[in-house]
């Protein structure tokens, strides 16, 4: 049997117990006129996530707290929220990195329904408006289409989007103007505009050239900072702008 020793750190050595103080913006439409703050104190592990902290509040202190969650590891996009002033996913931010004093609010720019749950319908309607699906009119027959690794790489970044909404709801233009499609919709248009198999780039560019489209973007980079998937959102928007100006035949 082959044996090797590798120098390394043990992760368990870094974990410690910590006191966590949470300040959460609460709103229950059935009783409250306006949102209000509630504070909670808990003992957790430094390796716990913010989502773990919310689950602990709900399970042990106050079962009326509502928030969405599913995968618990940053792939489903359920739990975008504002943590200490920045949009993040609760499940990928550890107490050890965001701190033990946490201020948690719903994301901005979408109507709050209850506590951290916002209405995602406007967001998904914007997504649907950019034709977010492959449109290829040629019949490939009963075989795969080919695509070179370079062509595939051209739109790789924007395929990573999990529709969490962190980008759009961090954008000052999006907060101020309900008509703006927002960065997430543009990212999902980009994913098809730059896919060599797709044939409807110009239709999408027309949509994004309208008043509600890319020209609203003020390049504030909030979206890129907010994206939990590390997508270069602002760059994608710039590429779409450039395509509208120069590439359209």
């Amino acid at each position: 049997m082959t044996t090797t020793t590798v120098e390394h750190t043990e992760p368990t050595a870094l974990i410690k117990e910590v006191d966590v103080h949470l300040t959460i913006k609460r709103f229950n439409p059935e009783v409250d006129v306006r949102p209000h703050w509630r504070e909670y104190d808990l003992r957790l592990k430094s390796s716990d996530t913010v989502l773990n902290a919310l689950i602990a509040v709900k399970g042990t202190i106050d079962g009326t707290l509502s928030f969405r969650r599913s995968c618990a590891h940053g792939v489903c996009g359920s739990d975008a929220m504002m943590i200490n002033g920045a949009n993040r996913l609760g499940c990928v931010n550890l107490i050890s990195s965001v701190g033990t004093d946490l201020v948690i609010e719903p994301v901005r720019g979408l109507p709050v329904i209850k506590d951290l749950v916002v209405d995602m319908e406007p967001f998904f309607a914007q997504y649907r408006s950019v034709l977010p699906y492959l449109i290829a009119n040629d019949d490939p027959g009963y075989k795969e289409r080919y695509q070179s690794p370079e062509d595939r790489a051209r739109f790789d970044d924007t395929t990573k989007c999990i529709l969490c909404g962190a980008c759009s709801t961090s954008c000052p233009v999006y907060w101020a103007n309900g008509a703006y499609v927002g960065p997430a919709a543009i990212v999902n248009a980009h994913r098809f505009i730059f896919d060599s198999r797709d044939q409807a780039a110009s239709e999408r560019l027309d949509i994004l050239n309208q008043k509600s489209g890319v020209w609203r973007c003020r390049t504030s980079f909030n979206c890129t900072e907010a994206c939990p998937r590390g997508i270069k959102v602002t760059q994608a928007i710039e590429e779409v702008k450039r395509a509208i100006l120069y590439d359209r035949s």
């Binding site: 009963y142 080919y146 395929t159």
Partner: peptide, 16 residues
Amino acid sequence: IDLEHFGLPFSRTPEG
């Protein structure tokens, strides 16, 4: 093949 036609961005070989 259905998924490819639906637009799934598979990883590709050098020949595509």
